[in-house]
Design a protein around this nucleic acid. Structure first.
Length: 702
DNA sequence: TTAGGGTTAG
């Protein structure tokens, strides 16, 4: 592989610190000299300030020579490489210990730990290194904190002093079971460390997302060993991806080439992933094309890369290429494909992926099943989502979050809250996403009291500080209750600077409550905070238009034109016979316009018999009398009418919208589904828009 | 000598 020197220039810690994912703490810019600069890896030695004062400047040049074979280790037995004698003066327990070891060999970890209970209860047994090693494997296999505490506690109580090998195993056990604080303490207290110890702790730091600390340790490690292998490179490339720093990743790539480890399969896959996560799918493709033998992980990485960049069709065609090449698919492949289907709204392909998942023996995989729960709930099949969830043999917080959010999307807030309570009863720890899901569900279903109680319990009972999105949910909830003063007070009382999302939620609340002054205030805040963001101009424009401030609206339009920002009126679309049909409110461009309008009129008449009364209140002070009529021809109703005219009786309709559905359309569509006996699914093109603007009246833009 | 690495879900 040829590398251009010009592409692999200079990284420095200040680049890391200015990356979007770097925590905005008080860390100073410490290093202006590059970590790696081209092929001349030399640094001035100088002392650095806190918090990295332990890092001394170092020279990488010796570490970048082609790898020399390591000298053979001495055959002399190192006293530290053997378990201490203290472990050998106890009661013999050969039977139990060998049974534990055999169970672990068969991956029957739970049973092994059940047997270990006998040793725990009776105590005083002679437990050998191999048994401790097996118990560590059992803990890693199960991944439970309780098992780690039991095994580690037993070792300490029995005076076991681990050698370097066992110290590394214990370190790994803590890392893999999510006990990073203990792992770090163990690592810091290790009398001797080798490359395995460093790789283990650095890998753990990357796993928990502390990539900067991983880099800090990597630098110290390099100073200590002047060497590292492909394992370290794979991990550090992953850390660059975590920090979204392509320049760092490129330099590591350069180093890997120089050290001859770039063709290592782990390094290659990490590079593909790093390039795609850092925004360069072209580089990812380049590394992938260069792979001498394309493995399952390689394919997974490149497909996930395309999906990440929004190239869902390309990702699917790569998936078909993978399938045709005969490479085995794994549970990662299916998880990625299900997510792509979710984006493409392709129920047929998702069903095929679901069937493939089961056929390939990954039917119980937690990640793929969670992706399925998310898919089915987003696409209007909450019962299917519930079924998949119920059949999952093991669930984690993410699985629960997917289902709770699903009930939320469906306006079934009470069930979402019930699920949340059930989750707590089952001792599953909620995280900030759980609260976002349940608070959004409360917001959609207008469960004010419930939402407020859950919001307050976040920090009180679960030690989770509410973030801006949680505040935005609460502002929306307060707004729905007409409590605008309280909503504004919540923004002012937030322990951080109000974010655009929070102001956007207040804006929506103001519009719903017809408080134009507060709405304008919130919109101008938004405008001031993100002057380059199109949607804020659009929100402000919509506000001005609706309040009849035509001069101000014209000024916003001029600004947009000057900046070259283009906006589109809100719209809905439906796919019929593999062709998308896009509708705007009062749209009359479609070839079937007359039929569509007649269909809408007949539908409105039909659902009126079932109690439908157009009741969306307009916020316009200067609304014309035709507004009620306009409501009938909102884009989603036109799309549904078109769908009913052009699809078979009984087949489901799927409508996608650029915006959030209004109450009137929501009520009308529910009744249309009832009278036509059709399943109708309406989905926001991006659910992240939901706090931006609660309206879908004609004349709005997005 | 053993042990440490890459891709997935909300």
């Amino acid at each position: 592989m040829e590398l251009s020197l010009a592409r692999y220039q200079c990284i420095s810690l200040d680049q890391i610190q200015t990356s979007p994912s770097f925590p905005s703490s008080n860390h100073k810019v410490l290093r202006t000299k590059p970590l790696f600069s081209g092929y001349c890896f030399r640094f001035d030695r100088r002392k650095l300030n806190n918090p990295f004062d332990k890092i001394k400047c170092f020279s990488l040049e010796q570490g970048l020579q082609p790898r020399r074979p390591k000298p053979k280790p001495s055959r002399t037995r190192d006293p530290e490489l053997k378990g201490t004698e203290e472990t050998r003066v106890k009661k013999p327990s050969v039977g139990i210990c060998s049974q534990i070891e055999k169970l672990v060999l068969c991956s029957r970890y739970r049973e092994a730990l059940e047997l270990f209970e006998i040793l725990e209860i009776k105590g005083g047994f002679d437990v050998g290194l191999s048994t401790y090693d097996a118990l560590v494997s059992a803990c890693i296999g199960l991944g439970t904190v309780r098992a780690v505490k039991r095994v580690f506690g037993y070792m300490i109580n029995n005076g076991f002093r681990p050698d370097l090998y066992m110290s590394n195993r214990l370190l790994l056990m803590h890392v893999k079971c999510g006990r990073m604080i203990d792992a770090r303490r163990l690592f810091d207290e290790m009398p001797r460390r080798n490359l395995v110890s460093w790789n283990t702790i650095i890998g753990g730091l990357v796993d928990i997302g502390d990539c900067l600390e991983a880099f800090r340790l990597f630098i110290i490690m390099w100073e200590e060993f002047s060497d590292c292998g492909s394992r370290t490179f794979a991990t550090m490339i992953r850390a660059s991806a975590g920090l979204e720093l392509i320049s760092v990743g490129r330099q590591l790539h350069s180093c890997a080439v120089k050290m001859g480890v770039n063709e290592d399969i782990f390094v290659t896959c990490a590079l593909i992933d790093m390039y795609s996560k850092c925004g360069s799918i072209e580089d990812a493709q380049w590394v992938f094309d260069d792979m001498p033998e394309k493995t399952t992980v390689g394919w997974n990485s490149i497909i996930a890369g395309y999906a990440l960049h929004g190239y869902s069709e390309e990702a699917l065609s790569m998936f078909y290429e993978m399938r045709d090449s005969g490479v085995k698919m794994d549970h990662f492949t299916f998880s990625i494909i299900i997510r792509i289907c979710s984006r493409l709204a392709s129920i047929e392909r998702a069903k095929q992926a679901h069937a493939g998942l089961v056929r390939s023996g990954f039917g119980f995989d937690i990640v793929a099943n969670t992706a399925l729960v998310d898919f089915y709930s987003k696409w209007g099949r909450i019962e299917d989502a519930q079924r998949v969830f119920d059949r999952m043999p093991c669930k984690n917080t993410i699985s629960w979050n997917a289902l709770i959010a699903g009930y939320g999307y469906h306006g079934r807030g009470a069930e979402a809250v019930d699920l949340f309570e059930q989750m707590l009863k089952e001792r599953m720890r909620p995280n900030h996403v759980t609260f976002l899901a349940v608070l959004s569900a409360c917001s959609y279903s207008r469960l004010f009291k419930c939402g407020w109680e859950i919001f307050q319990s976040m920090s009180r009972d679960h030690n989770i500080k509410p973030r801006a999105m949680h505040y935005a949910c609460m502002i929306e909830l307060l707004g729905q209750e007409g409590l605008l003063d309280e909503a504004f007070a919540l923004i002012r009382g937030a322990p951080f600077k109000p974010t655009a999302n929070m102001w956007a939620a207040l804006l929506t609340a103001s519009r719903v409550n017809e408080n134009f002054e507060l709405g304008k205030f919130a919109a101008e805040k938004l405008y001031g905070m993100e002057p380059e963001k199109l949607c804020n101009y659009v929100v402000l424009l919509n506000i001005y238009n609706r309040s009849g401030k035509l001069k101000e609206a014209a000024a916003v339009l001029q600004t947009l034109e000057r900046k070259g920002l283009r906006m589109r009126p809100v719209c809905s679309w439906i796919e019929v016979n593999k062709e998308s049909h896009v509708f705007r409110s009062r749209d009359k461009r479609h070839i079937q316009t007359n039929e569509i309008y007649q269909k809408v009129d007949s539908l409105i008449l039909e659902i009126s018999k079932h109690g439908y009364v157009p009741k969306e209140k307009t916020l316009l002070p200067d609304v014309d009398e035709q507004e009620q009529h306009v409501l009938s021809y909102h884009s989603e109703k036109l799309a549904i009418a078109f769908g009913l005219l052009n699809t078979m009786n009984g087949s489901p309709l799927q409508i996608v919208q650029s915006h959030r559905i209004c109450n009137d359309c929501h009520n009308a569509i529910k009744l249309i589904a009832l009278v036509t006996r059709r399943e109708i699914v309406v989905r926001d093109a991006s659910r992240f828009h939901r706090f931006k603007d609660g309206s879908c009246s004609c004349g709005d833009y997005w």
